[in-house]
Amino acid sequence: MSHKSDVRQRVFRDLRQVAFPDSRFHFDFGEFIADFQQREAATERLVAHRYYQEAKVIFITPDNCLEELRHRALQDGKQVLMTTYSIKRGFWLLDPAEIPEDRYLYAATLDGMERMGRAVTLAEIRQMPKTDFMVTGTGAINEAGIRFGKGHGFFDAEWGMLFRIGNIDVDTPSAALVHDCQVLAEELHPEVFDTVSDVIFTPTRTIEVSAPHKPTVGIVWELLDQEMYDTIPPLQELCRMEALGQV
């Protein structure tokens, strides 16, 4: 864990040269995933990929660098499943059929998504079509697809919850969209709960990952931080569902 922290800090120093500050967190990359220069080129690579082209429902994290992708997905008629505020206000669905077209851009923002989208519980997500593609930003990632996010494990928790209720499976592809300076050559090994990306998109490269690890453990409750459980309602909902034998 200390090695991961050292890597993050090194990457964050480089990222500061190309990242756009957040209106709330400035350059505190431990609190948000930054947008960055030439992000448009990385987004174009992603939307041209077959994973995006074939997807009807896409989970897209609420990262600053993915706002344009959320907008593009709505324009392309895709449903966008996402979370907001560290999952603390749960999962939300942006359905282009339910949002006026001239409000797509607003809906793709963190301020607009809760006004234009609708909150969905895990029980409701179980009844929805399966998610076809998972996309996240991250603090750093190596060429084997192992992410170093902000260190909170939100994407792995989101994967674990959706996997546990059957909304995704081991064949569901996941991608990371990052700046080139965030891609590392260092060799690391994923933890049992780490979701390794199938493909990495940068402004200059598309990196396909061979045999990426996909966790099948759901939520490892004994390893879950108590504060995450206490502050994230979907985790509490999943715990109740498991206790009642509903998943």
Rank of each mutant, 00 (worst) to 15 (best):
Ser86Lys: 09
Thr206Pro: 11
Glu124Lys: 01
Thr206Leu: 13
Thr204Gln: 15
Asp225Gln: 07
Phe12Lys: 07
Ile58Phe: 11
Pro215Gln: 11
Ala97His: 05
Asn142Arg: 04
Thr83Asn: 00
Leu93Tyr: 05
Val220Arg: 15
Val217Trp: 10
Ala176Val: 09
Ala19Thr: 07
Glu68Asp: 15
Gln38Leu: 14
Leu93Trp: 05
Thr131Asp: 03
Pro100Arg: 10
Arg39Lys: 13
Arg39Ile: 09
Gly160Trp: 13
Asn142Met: 00
Glu124Ile: 08
Phe32His: 11
Ala176Lys: 01
Lys214Thr: 02
Met1Trp: 07
Gly149Val: 04
Lys4Phe: 15
Asp28Phe: 10
Asp22Tyr: 08
Leu110Val: 15
His71Gln: 12
His189Pro: 03
Tyr85Phe: 12
Lys4Pro: 11
Met116Gly: 06
Ala144Thr: 05
Ser174Ile: 06
Tyr106Cys: 03
Phe133Val: 10
Val199Asn: 04
Glu67Asp: 12
Thr195His: 10
Met128Pro: 01
Glu186Ala: 03
Thr109Val: 05
Arg72Phe: 11
Met116Glu: 15
Thr172Met: 02
Pro62Asp: 15
Val11Leu: 08
Pro100Trp: 08
Met113Asn: 07
Met128Val: 02
Gly151Ile: 12
Gly137Leu: 13
Ala34Pro: 08
Phe29Val: 08
Ala123Val: 04
Arg45Tyr: 02
